[in-house]
Amino acid sequence: MQPLNQQPLVQKILNQPNYQFWALNLFGWAGYGFFVALSAIFWDRHLGLQAAYTLMSVTTGLVLSLGLREFFKKIWNLNAILRGIYSLLAVIVITGIWSFVKMEVFFYLNKDMESSRSLYEYLGWYTYSFFIFLSWAALYFSLKYYRMLQAEKEKTLKAQAMAHEAQLKMLRYQLNPHFLFNTLNAISTLILEKETVTANGMVTELSKFLRYSLDNNPMQKVTLAQEVETLKLYLGIEKLRFEERLNINFRISESARNAHIPNLLLQPLIENAIKYAIAKSPNGGTIELDADVLHNQLSIQLSDDGPGIADIPVAMRDRIEGQHGGVGLANTRERLHELYGAAHSFELENIEPRGLRITIRIPYSSTERSKAA
Protein backbone atom coordinates (compact mmCIF):
# COMPACT_ATOMS: atom_id res chain seq x y z
CA MET A 1 0.00 0.00 0.00
CA GLN A 2 1.35 3.40 -0.98
CA PRO A 3 1.89 6.08 1.69
CA LEU A 4 -0.92 8.64 1.78
CA ASN A 5 1.24 11.45 0.39
CA GLN A 6 2.37 9.26 -2.53
CA GLN A 7 -1.09 8.23 -3.69
CA PRO A 8 -2.16 9.22 -7.22
CA LEU A 9 -4.13 12.46 -7.42
CA VAL A 10 -7.34 10.64 -8.36
CA GLN A 11 -7.06 8.46 -5.24
CA LYS A 12 -6.49 11.53 -3.08
CA ILE A 13 -9.57 13.20 -4.54
CA LEU A 14 -11.64 10.08 -3.86
CA ASN A 15 -10.33 9.49 -0.33
CA GLN A 16 -9.46 12.87 1.18
CA PRO A 17 -12.09 15.55 1.98
CA ASN A 18 -9.71 18.47 1.41
CA TYR A 19 -8.80 17.26 -2.09
CA GLN A 20 -12.49 16.65 -2.82
CA PHE A 21 -13.34 20.23 -1.87
CA TRP A 22 -10.64 21.73 -4.08
CA ALA A 23 -11.47 19.48 -7.02
CA LEU A 24 -15.20 20.29 -6.89
CA ASN A 25 -14.65 23.98 -6.19
CA LEU A 26 -12.21 24.46 -9.05
CA PHE A 27 -14.34 22.37 -11.41
CA GLY A 28 -17.46 24.34 -10.49
CA TRP A 29 -15.89 27.75 -10.98
CA ALA A 30 -14.23 26.62 -14.20
CA GLY A 31 -17.66 25.53 -15.46
CA TYR A 32 -19.13 28.89 -14.51
CA GLY A 33 -16.29 30.67 -16.29
CA PHE A 34 -16.82 28.59 -19.42
CA PHE A 35 -20.47 29.62 -19.73
CA VAL A 36 -19.70 33.28 -18.95
CA ALA A 37 -17.03 33.31 -21.68
CA LEU A 38 -19.39 31.50 -24.05
CA SER A 39 -21.98 34.26 -23.59
CA ALA A 40 -19.71 36.61 -25.63
CA ILE A 41 -20.73 34.70 -28.75
CA PHE A 42 -24.46 35.00 -28.07
CA TRP A 43 -24.33 38.66 -27.02
CA ASP A 44 -21.86 39.66 -29.71
CA ARG A 45 -19.35 41.10 -27.25
CA HIS A 46 -15.65 41.70 -27.62
CA LEU A 47 -14.00 38.33 -26.96
CA GLY A 48 -10.90 39.76 -25.27
CA LEU A 49 -12.90 41.99 -22.92
CA GLN A 50 -15.26 39.13 -22.12
CA ALA A 51 -12.28 36.87 -21.34
CA ALA A 52 -10.88 39.51 -18.97
CA TYR A 53 -14.25 39.90 -17.30
CA THR A 54 -14.60 36.11 -17.02
CA LEU A 55 -11.17 35.77 -15.39
CA MET A 56 -11.99 38.50 -12.89
CA SER A 57 -15.43 37.06 -12.15
CA VAL A 58 -14.15 33.51 -11.62
CA THR A 59 -11.17 34.62 -9.52
CA THR A 60 -13.30 36.86 -7.32
CA GLY A 61 -15.95 34.17 -6.90
CA LEU A 62 -13.33 31.55 -6.02
CA VAL A 63 -11.70 33.78 -3.40
CA LEU A 64 -15.05 34.68 -1.86
CA SER A 65 -16.08 31.00 -1.78
CA LEU A 66 -12.92 30.19 0.17
CA GLY A 67 -13.81 32.90 2.67
CA LEU A 68 -17.32 31.48 2.89
CA ARG A 69 -15.88 28.04 3.58
CA GLU A 70 -13.79 29.37 6.49
CA PHE A 71 -16.86 31.10 7.90
CA PHE A 72 -18.91 27.90 7.65
CA LYS A 73 -16.16 26.06 9.54
CA LYS A 74 -16.33 28.58 12.38
CA ILE A 75 -20.10 28.28 12.81
CA TRP A 76 -20.29 24.53 12.27
CA ASN A 77 -20.64 23.68 15.96
CA LEU A 78 -23.60 26.01 16.47
CA ASN A 79 -27.08 24.54 16.66
CA ALA A 80 -28.80 23.88 13.34
CA ILE A 81 -31.10 26.94 13.42
CA LEU A 82 -28.33 29.44 14.18
CA ARG A 83 -26.04 27.77 11.68
CA GLY A 84 -28.73 28.09 9.00
CA ILE A 85 -29.40 31.78 9.79
CA TYR A 86 -25.72 32.75 9.84
CA SER A 87 -25.05 30.78 6.66
CA LEU A 88 -27.87 32.55 4.80
CA LEU A 89 -26.67 35.95 6.02
CA ALA A 90 -23.13 35.12 4.89
CA VAL A 91 -24.40 34.12 1.42
CA ILE A 92 -26.38 37.39 1.20
CA VAL A 93 -23.32 39.49 2.11
CA ILE A 94 -20.90 37.59 -0.13
CA THR A 95 -23.33 37.78 -3.03
CA GLY A 96 -23.66 41.52 -2.53
CA ILE A 97 -19.90 42.01 -2.73
CA TRP A 98 -19.49 39.74 -5.74
CA SER A 99 -22.40 41.31 -7.64
CA PHE A 100 -21.10 44.86 -7.11
CA VAL A 101 -17.56 43.97 -8.20
CA LYS A 102 -18.77 42.13 -11.30
CA MET A 103 -21.13 44.91 -12.35
CA GLU A 104 -18.52 47.65 -11.93
CA VAL A 105 -15.81 45.73 -13.79
CA PHE A 106 -18.20 44.72 -16.58
CA PHE A 107 -19.27 48.28 -17.32
CA TYR A 108 -15.71 49.54 -16.93
CA LEU A 109 -14.55 47.09 -19.62
CA ASN A 110 -17.59 47.80 -21.81
CA LYS A 111 -17.57 51.58 -21.72
CA ASP A 112 -19.49 51.78 -24.96
CA MET A 113 -22.57 50.31 -23.23
CA GLU A 114 -24.99 52.65 -21.56
CA SER A 115 -25.71 52.01 -17.90
CA SER A 116 -27.58 53.97 -15.28
CA ARG A 117 -25.91 52.04 -12.40
CA SER A 118 -29.38 51.96 -10.80
CA LEU A 119 -30.62 49.80 -7.93
CA TYR A 120 -32.74 47.94 -10.46
CA GLU A 121 -29.62 47.17 -12.51
CA TYR A 122 -27.79 46.00 -9.39
CA LEU A 123 -30.69 43.73 -8.33
CA GLY A 124 -30.54 42.06 -11.73
CA TRP A 125 -26.88 41.19 -11.16
CA TYR A 126 -27.56 40.25 -7.56
CA THR A 127 -30.42 37.82 -8.26
CA TYR A 128 -28.58 35.30 -10.43
CA SER A 129 -25.38 35.71 -8.37
CA PHE A 130 -27.32 34.89 -5.20
CA PHE A 131 -28.55 31.59 -6.62
CA ILE A 132 -24.99 30.68 -7.67
CA PHE A 133 -23.65 31.17 -4.13
CA LEU A 134 -26.74 29.64 -2.55
CA SER A 135 -26.19 26.54 -4.71
CA TRP A 136 -22.51 26.56 -3.71
CA ALA A 137 -23.46 26.66 -0.01
CA ALA A 138 -26.08 23.92 -0.44
CA LEU A 139 -23.53 21.69 -2.18
CA TYR A 140 -20.94 22.40 0.53
CA PHE A 141 -23.31 21.43 3.35
CA SER A 142 -24.60 18.40 1.43
CA LEU A 143 -21.07 17.06 1.02
CA LYS A 144 -20.26 17.87 4.64
CA TYR A 145 -23.29 15.96 5.91
CA TYR A 146 -22.62 13.12 3.49
CA ARG A 147 -19.08 12.72 4.83
CA MET A 148 -20.40 12.81 8.39
CA LEU A 149 -22.93 10.12 7.51
CA GLN A 150 -20.21 7.98 5.94
CA ALA A 151 -18.00 8.46 8.99
CA GLU A 152 -20.86 7.38 11.27
CA LYS A 153 -21.47 4.32 9.10
CA GLU A 154 -17.78 3.42 9.32
CA LYS A 155 -17.87 3.84 13.11
CA THR A 156 -20.98 1.65 13.30
CA LEU A 157 -19.43 -1.05 11.12
CA LYS A 158 -16.23 -0.91 13.15
CA ALA A 159 -18.20 -1.19 16.39
CA GLN A 160 -20.15 -4.13 14.99
CA ALA A 161 -16.93 -5.81 13.89
CA MET A 162 -15.41 -5.29 17.33
CA ALA A 163 -18.55 -6.67 18.98
CA HIS A 164 -18.47 -9.65 16.62
CA GLU A 165 -14.81 -10.28 17.48
CA ALA A 166 -15.49 -9.93 21.20
CA GLN A 167 -18.38 -12.39 20.92
CA LEU A 168 -16.19 -14.94 19.15
CA LYS A 169 -13.41 -14.51 21.69
CA MET A 170 -15.86 -14.95 24.55
CA LEU A 171 -17.19 -18.15 23.01
CA ARG A 172 -13.70 -19.33 22.12
CA TYR A 173 -12.35 -18.93 25.65
CA GLN A 174 -15.21 -20.71 27.43
CA LEU A 175 -13.03 -23.65 28.51
CA ASN A 176 -15.02 -26.02 30.64
CA PRO A 177 -13.67 -26.04 34.22
CA HIS A 178 -14.96 -29.62 34.47
CA PHE A 179 -12.13 -30.77 32.19
CA LEU A 180 -9.48 -28.86 34.17
CA PHE A 181 -10.78 -30.09 37.54
CA ASN A 182 -10.90 -33.71 36.42
CA THR A 183 -7.45 -33.51 34.88
CA LEU A 184 -5.91 -31.91 37.98
CA ASN A 185 -7.64 -34.47 40.20
CA ALA A 186 -6.28 -37.27 38.02
CA ILE A 187 -2.77 -35.79 38.27
CA SER A 188 -3.15 -35.50 42.04
CA THR A 189 -4.23 -39.16 42.26
CA LEU A 190 -1.29 -40.30 40.13
CA ILE A 191 1.13 -38.38 42.35
CA LEU A 192 -0.36 -39.90 45.51
CA GLU A 193 -0.04 -43.35 43.94
CA LYS A 194 3.57 -42.46 43.08
CA GLU A 195 2.98 -42.90 39.35
CA THR A 196 5.16 -39.87 38.73
CA VAL A 197 6.04 -40.71 35.12
CA THR A 198 2.38 -40.87 34.11
CA ALA A 199 1.59 -37.74 36.14
CA ASN A 200 4.45 -35.86 34.52
CA GLY A 201 3.22 -36.92 31.08
CA MET A 202 -0.26 -35.67 31.86
CA VAL A 203 1.08 -32.33 33.11
CA THR A 204 3.14 -31.96 29.93
CA GLU A 205 0.16 -32.74 27.68
CA LEU A 206 -2.07 -30.39 29.68
CA SER A 207 0.52 -27.62 29.39
CA LYS A 208 0.75 -28.05 25.62
CA PHE A 209 -3.02 -28.03 25.23
CA LEU A 210 -3.57 -24.94 27.40
CA ARG A 211 -0.73 -23.08 25.67
CA TYR A 212 -2.32 -23.76 22.30
CA SER A 213 -5.80 -22.83 23.59
CA LEU A 214 -4.74 -19.48 25.05
CA ASP A 215 -2.07 -18.39 22.58
CA ASN A 216 -3.93 -18.80 19.30
CA ASN A 217 -6.11 -16.03 17.92
CA PRO A 218 -9.77 -17.15 17.93
CA MET A 219 -10.45 -14.96 14.88
CA GLN A 220 -8.04 -17.01 12.78
CA LYS A 221 -8.81 -20.37 11.24
CA VAL A 222 -6.69 -23.50 11.12
CA THR A 223 -6.67 -26.52 8.88
CA LEU A 224 -8.61 -29.57 9.96
CA ALA A 225 -5.29 -31.42 10.14
CA GLN A 226 -4.03 -28.88 12.71
CA GLU A 227 -7.31 -29.16 14.63
CA VAL A 228 -6.92 -32.95 14.75
CA GLU A 229 -3.38 -32.61 16.13
CA THR A 230 -4.76 -30.35 18.87
CA LEU A 231 -7.52 -32.85 19.60
CA LYS A 232 -4.86 -35.51 20.01
CA LEU A 233 -3.25 -33.38 22.74
CA TYR A 234 -6.59 -33.17 24.54
CA LEU A 235 -7.45 -36.83 23.98
CA GLY A 236 -3.97 -37.85 25.14
CA ILE A 237 -4.84 -36.36 28.53
CA GLU A 238 -8.22 -38.08 28.63
CA LYS A 239 -6.65 -41.35 27.51
CA LEU A 240 -4.43 -41.27 30.58
CA ARG A 241 -7.59 -40.93 32.70
CA PHE A 242 -9.80 -43.51 31.03
CA GLU A 243 -7.12 -45.83 29.60
CA GLU A 244 -8.79 -48.71 27.69
CA ARG A 245 -12.28 -47.34 28.32
CA LEU A 246 -11.71 -44.64 25.71
CA ASN A 247 -11.42 -45.64 22.06
CA ILE A 248 -10.88 -43.10 19.30
CA ASN A 249 -11.20 -43.41 15.52
CA PHE A 250 -10.33 -40.64 13.05
CA ARG A 251 -11.28 -40.92 9.36
CA ILE A 252 -10.25 -37.72 7.57
CA SER A 253 -10.15 -37.56 3.77
CA GLU A 254 -7.13 -35.99 2.11
CA SER A 255 -9.15 -33.04 0.77
CA ALA A 256 -10.73 -32.43 4.19
CA ARG A 257 -7.32 -32.31 5.93
CA ASN A 258 -6.54 -28.96 4.28
CA ALA A 259 -9.97 -27.43 4.93
CA HIS A 260 -10.11 -24.32 7.12
CA ILE A 261 -12.18 -24.39 10.30
CA PRO A 262 -12.31 -22.19 13.45
CA ASN A 263 -9.62 -23.35 15.83
CA LEU A 264 -10.71 -25.54 18.75
CA LEU A 265 -14.15 -25.87 17.18
CA LEU A 266 -14.34 -29.62 17.83
CA GLN A 267 -12.78 -29.77 21.30
CA PRO A 268 -16.00 -28.85 23.17
CA LEU A 269 -17.86 -31.52 21.19
CA ILE A 270 -15.28 -34.18 22.05
CA GLU A 271 -15.35 -33.06 25.67
CA ASN A 272 -19.14 -33.32 25.64
CA ALA A 273 -18.99 -36.86 24.23
CA ILE A 274 -16.48 -37.94 26.89
CA LYS A 275 -18.60 -36.43 29.65
CA TYR A 276 -21.91 -38.02 28.62
CA ALA A 277 -20.89 -41.11 26.62
CA ILE A 278 -17.58 -42.35 28.10
CA ALA A 279 -17.53 -41.25 31.75
CA LYS A 280 -21.10 -42.43 32.37
CA SER A 281 -20.46 -45.94 31.06
CA PRO A 282 -18.56 -48.55 33.16
CA ASN A 283 -17.18 -50.04 29.96
CA GLY A 284 -16.35 -46.68 28.36
CA GLY A 285 -17.03 -46.27 24.69
CA THR A 286 -15.86 -45.11 21.28
CA ILE A 287 -15.67 -41.68 19.70
CA GLU A 288 -15.43 -41.43 15.91
CA LEU A 289 -14.60 -38.41 13.78
CA ASP A 290 -15.32 -38.49 10.04
CA ALA A 291 -14.63 -35.59 7.67
CA ASP A 292 -14.93 -35.21 3.92
CA VAL A 293 -15.59 -32.56 1.28
CA LEU A 294 -19.00 -32.92 -0.38
CA HIS A 295 -20.50 -30.49 -2.91
CA ASN A 296 -18.04 -27.73 -2.01
CA GLN A 297 -18.83 -28.08 1.68
CA LEU A 298 -16.77 -29.51 4.50
CA SER A 299 -18.82 -32.20 6.22
CA ILE A 300 -17.75 -33.24 9.74
CA GLN A 301 -19.47 -36.03 11.66
CA LEU A 302 -18.69 -36.73 15.30
CA SER A 303 -20.25 -39.90 16.73
CA ASP A 304 -20.25 -41.69 20.05
CA ASP A 305 -21.95 -44.84 21.37
CA GLY A 306 -23.33 -43.21 24.48
CA PRO A 307 -26.99 -42.78 25.48
CA GLY A 308 -27.80 -40.23 22.76
CA ILE A 309 -30.21 -37.38 23.34
CA ALA A 310 -33.35 -39.37 24.13
CA ASP A 311 -32.03 -40.87 27.40
CA ILE A 312 -30.62 -37.64 28.80
CA PRO A 313 -32.77 -35.73 31.34
CA VAL A 314 -34.73 -32.85 29.79
CA ALA A 315 -32.90 -30.15 31.77
CA MET A 316 -29.51 -31.48 30.66
CA ARG A 317 -30.78 -32.06 27.11
CA ASP A 318 -31.72 -28.40 26.82
CA ARG A 319 -28.20 -27.43 27.77
CA ILE A 320 -26.68 -29.87 25.28
CA GLU A 321 -28.93 -28.76 22.44
CA GLY A 322 -27.89 -25.16 23.03
CA GLN A 323 -31.23 -23.69 24.01
CA HIS A 324 -29.85 -22.05 27.15
CA GLY A 325 -26.35 -21.07 25.97
CA GLY A 326 -24.37 -23.68 27.90
CA VAL A 327 -20.78 -24.55 27.11
CA GLY A 328 -20.39 -27.52 24.76
CA LEU A 329 -22.73 -27.92 21.85
CA ALA A 330 -24.30 -24.54 22.55
CA ASN A 331 -20.86 -22.90 22.36
CA THR A 332 -20.13 -24.54 19.04
CA ARG A 333 -23.55 -23.65 17.67
CA GLU A 334 -23.08 -19.97 18.57
CA ARG A 335 -19.58 -19.79 17.10
CA LEU A 336 -20.75 -21.28 13.82
CA HIS A 337 -23.66 -18.84 13.69
CA GLU A 338 -21.34 -15.88 14.31
CA LEU A 339 -18.88 -16.99 11.63
CA TYR A 340 -21.07 -18.44 8.88
CA GLY A 341 -24.64 -17.30 9.47
CA ALA A 342 -27.08 -19.19 7.26
CA ALA A 343 -24.23 -20.77 5.26
CA HIS A 344 -23.75 -23.59 7.78
CA SER A 345 -25.75 -26.44 9.30
CA PHE A 346 -25.48 -28.08 12.71
CA GLU A 347 -27.53 -31.24 13.30
CA LEU A 348 -27.92 -33.73 16.15
CA GLU A 349 -29.39 -37.21 15.72
CA ASN A 350 -29.60 -40.43 17.65
CA ILE A 351 -27.98 -43.45 16.00
CA GLU A 352 -28.83 -47.13 16.32
CA PRO A 353 -28.47 -49.14 18.42
CA ARG A 354 -27.31 -46.30 20.68
CA GLY A 355 -25.30 -43.14 20.44
CA LEU A 356 -25.31 -39.56 19.20
CA ARG A 357 -24.11 -38.16 15.87
CA ILE A 358 -23.31 -34.47 15.35
CA THR A 359 -23.08 -33.30 11.74
CA ILE A 360 -21.51 -29.95 10.85
CA ARG A 361 -21.42 -28.54 7.33
CA ILE A 362 -19.60 -25.30 6.52
CA PRO A 363 -18.37 -23.71 3.27
CA TYR A 364 -15.18 -25.36 2.06
CA SER A 365 -12.01 -23.32 1.83
CA SER A 366 -8.41 -24.47 1.90
CA THR A 367 -4.83 -23.27 1.61
CA GLU A 368 -4.51 -24.95 -1.78
CA ARG A 369 -7.57 -23.14 -3.08
CA SER A 370 -6.24 -19.78 -1.87
CA LYS A 371 -2.94 -20.38 -3.64
CA ALA A 372 -4.70 -21.43 -6.84
CA ALA A 373 -6.81 -18.31 -6.79
Rank of each mutant, 00 (worst) to 15 (best):
A199W: 05
M170Q: 15
G285A: 05
G201E: 08
F179H: 10
Y173P: 04
Q220R: 15
L269T: 05
Y276V: 09
L175D: 00
Y212M: 02
F179R: 03
F250D: 00
E165Q: 12
A273M: 08
R245D: 07
L180D: 03
S188H: 13
G285R: 02
P262Q: 08
A163N: 13
M170V: 15
Q267W: 00
N182P: 10
R257K: 14
S213I: 03
E238M: 11
L265V: 08
K155A: 14
L224K: 05
Y173N: 11
I278D: 10
A166L: 15
P262M: 03
E271M: 04
E195P: 13
A161V: 06
L157V: 09
L184G: 02
P218A: 06
G236T: 01
L180E: 04
T204Q: 14
A163M: 10
A186G: 10
K221G: 06
L157N: 11
H260E: 10
Q174A: 15
G236E: 01
A199E: 03
K169F: 01
N217P: 11
R245V: 03
S207H: 14
T223K: 05
L240I: 03
F179G: 06
V203M: 13
S255Q: 13
L231F: 05
P268W: 02
E271S: 00
N263M: 11
F242A: 04
Q160M: 10
L184W: 02
T183W: 07
A161E: 12
I187G: 09
A256S: 00
R172F: 15
A186F: 02
L240N: 04
A279K: 05
Y234A: 03
V203G: 04
H260D: 11
S255H: 12
L206A: 11
F209R: 08
N283P: 03
A256Q: 00
K221D: 13
R172L: 07
L157H: 10
T223Q: 00
L233Y: 02
I270N: 05
L184Y: 02
Y212R: 02
E238H: 14
L214K: 08
L214T: 11
L214G: 03
A273C: 12
P268L: 06
I237M: 13
Q167H: 13
L184K: 01
P262F: 05
L231S: 01
